[in-house]
Nucleic acid binder design. Sequence first.
RNA 1: GAGCCAUUAGCUCAGCAGGCAGAGCACCUGACUUUUAAUCAGGGUGUCCGGCGUUCGAAUCGCCGAUGGCUCACCA
Length: 479
Amino acid sequence: MIVRRGKMEEFRSLGLDPFGHRFQRTAYSTDITEHFEEMEGKSVAVTGRIMSVRGHGKVSFMEISDIKGTLQLFFKIDVLGEENFKQIKLLDIGDIIGVNGEVFRTQRGQISVRVERWEILSKSLRPLPEKFHGLTDTEIRYRQRYVDLIMNPEVKDVFIKRSKIISAIRHYLDSHGYMEVETPVLHTLAGGAAARPFITHHNTLDMEMYLRIALELHLKRLIVGGLEKVYEIGRVFRNEGIDIRHNPEFTLMELYEAFSDYEGMIELTEDLLKNVCLAVNGTTTVVCQGETIDFSHFERMTMVEAVKKYSGIDYYAYDTVAEMKKAIAEKGIDLEDNDTSTKGYLLNALFDVTVEKHLIQPTVIMDYPIEISPLAKKMDDPNFTYRFEGFVLGRELCNAFSELNDPIDQRERFERQMDLRKEGDEEANPLDEDYLTAMEYGLAPTGGIGIGIDRLVMLLTDSASIRDVLLFPTMKQRE
RNA sequence: GAGCCAUUAGCUCAGCAGGCAGAGCACCUGACUUUUAAUCAGGGUGUCCGGCGUUCGAAUCGCCGAUGGCUCACCA
């Protein structure tokens, strides 16, 4: 580092700014390497970061990297002159340079640019990791993502793909008449999902505020307002554990459509996912964690059917909780720490323990127990709601329902949630009086869906950890 | 929140029957006019994660702590 600072000063003493200015590039690396026939013999201006240097006395080779790829530069004393050639010794791996020269092929056949003029655009004062092994230390990769991005081109590809996925979602929704909106991140009540919120404080108003845990209740207020087809792609925050699939802040897409229902949401989800997959991968299949996932078809099952299929327990065969529990125990199924106080909770527990992991190909599980669905519309059997979740690779990818639009029923559901809260359930939904007021003005029959964007990106980029699809994952502060 | 594992040079790692801190790449000096993990000759640049302890002596053993990874719990 001391040596690099010295070189920086030497550039200055030569009248060259080691932290230069605008550079007008005429070609990217891949424009040259992939279209050599048209480019051969042409003069180009290229720029990039020096990734390797191979000096040979009176000639020198360097590899530079730009957003699209890498390119070899060829420096020759005959072309540059003795003085100028000597100055390339001031360049280090990591420096950003701009060069002008002619496209040609070396004796070994490598497509290169014969440098006629070069300039330092930014001197790198810190050495990059070793070229062969690169950077593998996960802690540095996540904390100093910029170094990770410089050294590992496949990491860059993941984030380029993430951008394309989100862009494809927007394109699909915009072209289908959905309107993108922005709702508050700071909430006075953290509702719309079951999770513990981050708490903050507004000084001037002198009140507690919460970072949102869902987008749901504000978006549904907009449906009341007549916006009819809205969506938001936004960051939500849940004060929960961090692991391979969870980060405290993550990106959620929620969409609401008046006069639709959960059937409409299933159709939308299938079509959206198929289109996004096609747009970013060119096919409807994707290989993730060794499994080939086909987004062209979604299996459909009710939760009761799925539980019967995988656990052998038929929800309808038992009249009481006790009978059902007895049957579960006889099968030797361990429900772990799940709530088992009602048949609905038992069904959900069975689903978690016995079904979820089997849902590898895209599967829609329909008709959830009312106990775990406080914002979804009741079915004819009042123990169930018009709700579905989409599963892929044994993980939940989306959650949707026919929205509960009866304000009287909603108030009762909120009150039940408040009871749970009093019993110590920190994740129960709080009663949102303003949301009830909105509903009392009339919420059209509505279908709504939420899709976990990070999980979708994980699937489409074959990433094992959510941290691999977040540019800057949440990390503990050092020291 | 619990368990297991890891932390040594800029990077990737070795060294751990307790005995002078090591290799490759990077870097520095020199040679080399077509290399591509260039090559050749020479040079080690360090808070061995931190603290305490055991010991004549600790990178190595013990305890406490920090950070990270994985697994489990909560959750999407």
